[in-house]
Design a binder for these strands. Structure first.
Length: 453
RNA sequence: GGGGGCGUGGCGAAGCUGGUUAUCGCGCCGGCCUGUCAAGCCGGAGGCCGCGGGUUCAAGUCCCGUCGCUCCCGCCA
């Protein structure tokens, strides 16, 4: 015991010699270094002052470790929460430490100190303390330091990664299309306007037209991870004015079922990977992510009949409202044991102009939505590839064909049957983790009122 | 665009039918403690109850307006 005190008093005068980024050890790599002297770097997560004995929890991007030191070290370096330090010491296996491992501090170097009081708690206590969404977002950088919240975007990064990997392997080419555009792509939704030199331009609400044009350009299969913009003044827990759309478009399909088959396979791959890579995050959020067997495909018309029969809910116009979407997911869970459900064959007047109508009943279309835990996360379908049919469709919606020649010409020179879809990145993140507001799934959300941070 | 709810120290909340110095937890500052782990104990600072107006002897509390936030609908991913 006395020896231990003696060792603790020594280290302050020791210099951190030879310390560079190259020999910094990450906290999740400490196990193999038991008995060795290492340097870890990070933020002070918490200090438990035990009198002479002090416990400093240090957090880096890989985890948290307990550093054992004395009171004079903490005081002389004025260590406080969120101070950025390098800490050098010996890795000790000790069952009294939370992960069975701790570092006995020998030297500390302060890299940066907080100069203002922390407006919110970063450390574990924050998990027990509710923060209002506005507080979380107003203090975005600090709130993201909380490991639990930080993990949301590690998972989101994996979704993007899986999307790219999966579709690249399926022969899709990644594209990047302009977000400043001359005309609205689909009409209906409000577009943000851009002052484009002496012209009026818009922010793209979707990469739809460009995806199709590039299918026609001979790539056949394309995908994009890109921002889209919607100027709707909606203010709900599932809408953003800027979000990330995971899009793909594929040529030479038989019908929209090929597009759904592809998404189904992707979802299985994605969920397997999320389970494999982020089991801990799912546990933290109290979520399971079962791999779907087969995702049922139910025509909207049929879903309305089910809602009427099973839930006594009347739907007008064959388009489910949010409550209807929750109920039909509830029904699918009971009858098919699935949290995912394709609703198909939406009525023509609910779908964009380029959607392929059903031959058997032209009032309905070869389109679909994918619902996940009661929320729409995908819209897709087969597109019209016949030039004359498409021009007629534009005319029937009183769209000025001249304005869209840049797009329509794609179909004038030979275009394969094709279809595609878009997945809302923030929405699928929200649903996987069970987040109550989509803004928590957007790293810097843009909504009706928020332009900063 | 329509409807509901909420604004109380840095954070999260309590404050019943209006009634002395506005309460609690966390955080913050200082002190004590050699195994804490949502550490503990002792002491302290910090709020004109979003803002403006009104009712009243008296307003955090009631009324009106206003701003902000939030949720739902429409629309969508």
């Amino acid at each position: 015991m006395t020896l231990e005190i003696y060792i603790f008093k020594l280290p302050l005068i020791l210099k951190l010699y030879g310390r560079t980024m190259k020999n910094r050890v990450f906290i999740n790599e400490l196990k193999p270094n038991i008995g060795k002297k290492v340097t870890v770097g990070g933020w002070v997560h918490n200090i438990r002052d035990q009198g002479k004995l002090n416990f400093v929890l240090l957090r880096d991007r890989t985890g948290i470790v307990q550093i054992v030191t004395d009171d004079t070290t903490v005081r002389s370096n004025d260590l406080r929460n969120e101070t950025v330090i390098f800490a050098t010491g010996t890795v000790i296996e000790d069952e009294r430490a939370e992960n069975g491992i701790e570092i006995r501090l020998e030297a500390v170097e302060v890299l940066s100190r907080p100069v203002k009081p922390l407006p919110i708690l970063v450390n574990d206590k924050a998990d027990y303390q509710k923060l209002e969404l506005e507080t979380i977002l107003n203090n975005r950088v600090l709130s993201l330091r909380n490991p639990r919240r930080n993990k949301i975007f590690k998972l989101q990064a994996s979704i993007i990664d899986c999307f790219r990997t999966f579709f690249r392997e399926k022969g899709f080419t990644e594209i990047t299309t302009p977000k400043i555009i001359a005309t609205g792509t689909e009409g209906g939704t409000q577009l943000f306007t851009v002052d484009y030199f002496d012209k009026l331009a818009f922010l793209a609400q979707s990469p739809q037209f460009y995806k199709q044009m590039l299918v026609g350009a001979g790539y056949e299969r394309v995908f994009e991870v890109g921002h889209v913009y919607r100027a709707e003044e909606h203010n709900t827990s599932r809408h953003l004015n800027e979000y990330v759309s995971l899009d793909y478009e594929m040529g030479f399909i038989d019908d929209e079922n090929d597009v759904m088959d592809m998404e189904e396979e992707f979802i299985k791959y994605l969920f397997e990977e999320i389970n494999r890579r982020h089991g801990d995050i799912l546990t933290t959020y109290g979520q399971n992510l079962p791999i779907p067997e087969k995702i049922p495909r139910i025509p909207v018309k049929e879903s309305c009949e089910i809602l009427e029969k099973e839930y006594n809910k009347v739907t007008k116009g064959y388009d489910l409202d949010p409550e209807g979407e929750k109920l039909i997911c509830d029904w699918a869970k009971k009858n098919y044991n699935t949290e995912l459900l394709f609703l198909t064959e939406y009525p023509k007047n609910k779908r964009p102009v380029y959607t392929m109508p059903l031959e058997t009943n032209p009032d309905f279309t070869r389109s679909f939505d994918l619902l996940f835990r009661g929320l729409e996360i995908t819209t897709g379908g087969q597109r019209i590839h016949d030039y004359n049919m498409l021009v007629e469709a534009f005319k029937s919606r009183r769209l000025n064909v001249e304005d869209f020649n840049y797009y329509l010409d794609t179909f004038a020179y030979g275009m394969p049957p094709h279809g595609g879809l878009a997945i809302g990145l923030e929405r699928i993140t929200q649903q996987i983790l069970g987040l109550s507001n989509i803004r928590e799934a957007s790293i810097f959300p843009r909504d009706r009122n928020r332009l900063t941070p």
